[in-house]
Design a protein around this nucleic acid. Structure first.
Lengths: 104, 104
DNA sequence: CATCTATATTGACAGACATCTATATTCGTA
DNA sequence: TACGAATATAGATGTCTGTCAATATAGATG
């Protein structure tokens, strides 16, 4: 979670930005968001012209940043957006867009 | 500006995240935001243990992403936050945090 | 248990990025 | 105009990142 102490927050914030700092991963987030159900890794894989390990790699980065979460069902893994994390990220960025000293 | 057509928006979004995907640059944004006046490059330089060219390099990346803007006064260059851009970024991210189909 | 399917891990490699030193540019001032 | 100070650019270099092929792991099913 991003809303924690200073240094940790800073690092988490950077980690989230880093995770989103790739056209592929940004598209993945879009895709998962656009789906109304959790999205299976194999479905995600079919939306990109990349090898299965590469897809897995990107999904892991998004997961490690806390932007998406995974649920295993059988041999499949389903991903969904971690809303709280993205909301916290948005709030942090929004603060930079506010005049200094304004809290909301 | 981020709020434009699809592909361009996607790229701009990624570019902003990429610009913020570095502890140094995130700190710079914090620093500039924390200052109530536009901040001189030389002041920024003194806050980091990095060479002047490296500082210049990072500031340029933030500028190119539209996150900060520069104003030259004499031989000095002053930087300020580009609020609209950061606000647009925050809004885009916030949308991913909302259930699909919800606009606000 | 053997095998198939879905996903993850490993290792290798090319391209991108951060950093530095050296140098150029631009502006103010003597 | 010549010099000094602030910033930018160029080139070199080590490190990180994205990608793939090969392989491992885990679960389903015959």
């Amino acid at each position: 979670m991003i809303n924690t102490p200073d240094v940790a927050q800073h690092d988490a914030l950077v980690a989230c930005c880093k995770a989103l700092a790739s056209p592929i991963r940004m598209s993945m987030v879009r895709l998962i968001h656009a789906s109304n159900e959790p999205l299976c890794a194999c479905d995600i894989e079919q939306s990109f012209d990349l090898s299965q390990p590469t897809i897995s790699h990107h999904l892991r980065i998004l997961r490690d940043a806390g932007i998406i979460a995974a649920t295993a069902r059988g041999t499949n893994v389903y991903f969904h957006i971690e809303r709280a994390q993205l909301m916290a990220l948005a709030c942090c960025i929004e603060q930079f867009a506010q005049p200094n000293g304004v809290s909301a």
